[in-house]
Write a protein that binds this DNA or RNA. Structure first.
Length: 740
DNA sequence: TCAATCCGTATC
DNA sequence: ATACGGATTGAC
């Protein structure tokens, strides 16, 4: 019976008749996760299954049940023989669809994610399972997973079965796993990159442990790795190659990227090594029908190479053997909806639960990734120094000195002589120049006026800020005043507030290079690529277009702005942005130059010049360990109106190790997400949001060993609040994305 | 003594 | 949200 028909029938049957439906003979009890986002209802509820529904009522299907007097959606999670519940049981109203949309693996993953982030299962299931689309489901057997760019012609069910038999074509052992870099597909799709890969030892072979990793994959083992990609690396193709290894074994791979641009690139690379029909790309901008169609294609096992952004971390890939993500430092991996899970954590949990291989890749390296290495849970895949030297452009620091000739164009644009010369040289050789300028809107912080290091609280190591309306320094985490501040690094007593909106404009920079074509990529209009040929490309971090053949030079301007932003991750983030931009530049041997306009003494500049993301991450992690920052500690944020946060803190049964910082007032934009804003764009007008003065935030930190206890305490708090219908907004976030 | 109403609590 | 149970109230 089709779902539509069953619905039609149940509508017509009067309630009195429904009540006497016979219960299922076999396992008559269903345990249901109801779609109610209340913490005190975050458990399974028992319902009776009608015999007529019994076949369809499999674990993982959507059901509709009467809950507290009203009909709600839910997922059937288990079928059991008997109920523990004392009272009477209601019958499942109907099985919405026989489609098993929550696999056992995804169910377990969602529960674990909810627990990890002190959230409720219903919220996580909503992140994991797209809304049902009835027409797609009914008509879509054999939904075309590859329905990539063009429309998707519906296929028959045989399509999926046939496809499953395909992956023997390239009958090869691990030796054949290494495709040529300039190999057919990807090369033609991404001509940019291929030219940058060194002639010798391309592919995964360019890395220590690279080949061993693929061999382990091919062996069916579950290696876990943190991968440091070479500058200019065609990471999408490397990911595709790794996916192909598991695909050839008939198993599934799940690959994540931060945004749509990277996804398009990954899709092209996948299509160059895996038949299109075996690929599903889960894009966020798809309509509900197409989104559900692709979800079903993955769920039904007809697509085994799956790519997507953060939400795809939950995709029900069949027989999953590999999960991977590129550039895990990108804040787009932090889910903005409750309970705010980070895709890196989701993948790591999934890798552990499903015994899959894991790759956390990037040009730079996060402290979180470093922690996976330090604990021995993952192993590094790194290039040799020799390989790095071959790929990296020449990098120099020009400090903050500007051109001295007052009337020169370079001086007008406040470009240092070195920066100007590098750009001029690239343009003269016919190559484009990338100019990276921080976007506006960073939270202002306080930094040492001498060495530029962020000023930190002596008590909790949180960031200092100038207290509104005064000239006093105080800690943004714990609120303590910081009179007589002295820089611990250089002993200077002078500090300065980092400025918002001092970034140079594209026009300003363009004037320094009269005659050159000026291109902007920022905010709403982000360019994917620019053609070869002389041009000045001004871009905000993250919006840098690829250049065919690589940039001749890159100028990384106003680094102090990025370094000085009041965020825990400012240093790591700045290095990541710089490195990402530098990977778009030709190798030094081909004339590629990078000039970073920040003082040579700045640690981030040192790591950039030495191109040593591993040591940078190690140092970063060591510092965070010392200062008590994530990921060395577990941190939770509790934010809301002042009395609400106060009451919550009083009520929380925290582990004894917990340290409460604050509460302190938060201001407009404190929790705004890091959306790209145009260089020239105005800062969001003050007062556009909730009156900031009334909002406060407290931070709670515990040693990693007490992470679970912290999460449990917060869940208990949330449960008590929802039970008493306490609807005053309170945002509870574990490992908050922004720690400003 | 009993029905009507209010309030708190559970929701299978 | 809605439903239910127990307590409270008011009329007979």
């Amino acid at each position: 019976m089709t779902a539509a028909r069953r619905r039609a029938v149940s509508r017509r049957v009067p309630a009195a008749v429904r009540v006497i439906r016979e219960r299922a003979v076999h396992r008559p009890i269903a345990r249901v996760a109801v779609d109610v986002p209340l913490a005190h209802l975050d458990r399974l509820f028992d319902y009776l299954v009608a015999e007529a529904d019994s076949a369809a009522a499999q674990p993982g299907v959507r059901v509709r049940v009467r809950f507290a007097g009203r009909l709600v959606d839910g997922f059937l999670m288990e079928r059991v023989d008997a109920s523990e519940h004392d009272g009477g049981l209601a019958m499942i109203e109907r099985v919405t669809s026989p489609e098993v949309v929550v696999t056992a693996q995804v169910a377990r993953l969602c529960r674990a994610v909810a627990d990890r982030y002190a959230g409720v299962l219903a919220d996580v299931l909503r992140l994991a399972i797209p809304p049902r689309h009835g027409r797609v489901e009914e008509a879509g057997w054999g939904a075309d997973p590859a329905a990539g760019a063009a429309g998707s012609a519906p296929e028959t069910g045989e399509g999926a079965a046939v496809r499953a038999a395909v992956p023997t074509r390239d009958a090869a052992g691990s030796d054949d796993v290494r495709p040529s870099d300039r190999g057919a597909g990807a090369g033609s799709v991404m001509p940019v990159i291929s030219g940058l890969i060194p002639e010798a030892g391309g592919g995964w072979d360019a890395y220590v442990a690279g080949r061993a990793f693929l061999a382990a994959l091919d062996d069916g083992r579950a290696p876990r790795a943190v991968w440091q990609a070479l500058p200019g690396e065609d990471w999408a193709l490397r990911f595709a190659e790794a996916a192909r290894v598991v695909w050839q074994r008939g198993r599934g791979a799940l690959l994540l990227v931060p945004d749509a641009r990277d996804l398009a690139r990954l899709e092209a690379a996948l299509e160059s090594v895996i038949p299109r029909a075996d690929i599903a790309v889960l894009r966020a901008d798809l309509g509900p029908a197409e989104r559900y169609r692709r979800f079903l294609a993955v769920n039904r096992g007809s697509a085994r190479g799956v790519a997507g952004a953060r939400a795809a971390a939950f995709a029900p890939v069949r027989d999953l053997a590999l999960v991977a993500m590129f550039d895990d430092g990108d804040d787009l991996y932090a889910e903005p909806r409750a309970p705010y899970p980070h895709a890196r954590e989701v993948l790591a949990m999934r890798s552990a639960q499903e015994q899959t291989a894991l790759v956390i890749g990037g040009f730079a390296r996060t402290a979180e990734a470093q922690l996976l290495l330090r604990s021995g849970w993952a192993r590094p895949i790194e290039p040799t120094r020799a390989e790095v030297r071959q790929c990296v452009p020449r990098i120099e620091a020009a400090g903050d000195e500007y051109a001295t000739q007052a009337d020169s164009a370079a001086a007008a644009a406040r470009l240092s002589p070195a920066a100007f010369a590098a750009a001029r040289g690239a343009l003269d050789s016919g190559a484009p120049v990338l100019v990276q300028v921080p976007r506006r809107g960073y939270l202002p912080g306080v930094a040492c006026a001498e060495c530029g290091r962020p000023a930190r609280c002596r008590r909790c190591s949180g960031p200092l800020a100038v207290r509104a309306g005064t000239r006093m320094l105080s800690c943004r985490w714990c609120g303590v005043a910081a009179p007589r501040w002295v820089c611990p690094a250089c002993a200077s007593q002078r500090y300065r507030a980092t400025v918002i909106g001092a970034a140079r404009t594209a026009e300003e920079i363009g004037r320094a290079f009269p005659g050159a074509r000026l291109v902007t990529s920022a905010g709403e209009k982000v360019l994917d690529r620019v053609p070869a040929g002389p041009a000045v490309v001004v871009a905000t971090p993250g919006a840098e277009p690829f250049a065919d053949g690589g940039y001749g030079a890159a100028l990384l301007l106003d680094g102090r702005l990025m370094l000085g932003r009041a965020d825990l991750r400012a240093g790591e983030e700045t290095l990541r942005r710089w490195m990402t931009a530098a990977t778009l530049v030709r190798p030094a041997a081909a004339g590629g130059r990078v000039v970073v306009g920040t003082d040579l003494a700045t640690p981030a500049v040192q790591w950039l010049i030495r191109w040593d993301p591993a040591s940078a991450a190690e140092t970063e992690l060591a510092q965070r360990t010392e200062l008590g920052f994530p990921p060395a500690v577990a941190m939770a944020s509790v934010a809301g109106a002042e009395p609400v946060v106060g009451a919550a803190l009083a009520e929380l049964a925290l582990p004894p190790s917990a340290e409460v910082l604050g509460p302190v007032p938060v201001w407009d934009g404190q929790f705004r997400r890091d959306g790209a804003e145009p260089v020239d764009g105005a800062h969001a007008p003050a007062g556009a949001q909730v009156p900031a003065a009334e909002r406060v935030r407290a931070l709670i930190r515990v040693p990693p060993a007490d992470r679970k206890a912290l999460a449990a305490a917060l869940h208990v708090l949330a449960a008590a609040r929802s039970a008493r219908k306490d609807s005053e907004p309170l945002r509870i976030e574990i490992d908050p994305a922004e720690l400003g």
